[in-house]
């Protein structure tokens, strides 16, 4: 916990939007160049993790709570797998996104975007889950406090 290091706190606050925007850039650039949901997810998670390291895990969990993370992991997988099924339902092979758009390129494009979104969600939330898990171990008292604040929120 680094509540007293004012420089770090200010710089972190400045960095956060940049990191998140970069994550989104990587995410949407994935279609054309290096990048994609996996890297973007890690980058986005890095933002939250940085926030948590500087402002404390409870603060990070205030942003994205543990239970949300736990739902996001399977949700991402579901989006990924569900997109494939949608292709199936539209009469093509599994993972074939062509029927999503007016023509096959557009369909594939849209399909990849959705799949990447799913990957993004899963990867980002998994990174967070790991961080919360280990962070909780490192600072039991904080974790307990975080749990309490979480409960009071609910």
């Amino acid at each position: 916990m680094m509540r007293d290091t004012i420089i770090l706190r200010v710089v972190t606050k400045l960095l956060l939007p940049v990191i998140l925007i970069f994550a989104l850039y990587v995410q949407f650039h994935g279609d054309y160049g290096p990048g994609g949901g996996f890297q973007a997810g890690v980058a986005a998670a890095a933002a939250i993790i940085l926030y948590g390291m500087v402002f404390g895990i409870p603060a990070a969990q205030h942003v994205i709570s543990k239970s949300v993370v736990q739902i996001m992991i399977p949700l991402g997988v579901l989006i990924f797998a569900g997109t494939g099924v949608a292709g199936l339902l539209l009469g093509e092979n599994y993972l074939n996104y062509s029927p999503f758009g007016s023509h096959s390129e557009a369909g594939q494009h849209l399909g990849i975007l959705i799949v990447e979104a799913g990957v993004f969600i899963t990867v980002a939330s998994t990174m967070l889950a790991i961080f919360y898990g280990f962070g909780g171990l490192a600072d039991e008292a904080d974790a307990a406090a975080a749990e309490k604040s979480e409960e009071s929120e609910e």
């Binding site: 736990q70 739902i71 399977p74 579901l78 797998a81 569900g82």
Partner: peptide, 9 residues
Amino acid sequence: LIAAPLCAI
């Protein structure tokens, strides 16, 4: 594969 995340959600 689809059923697994459903369980988790």
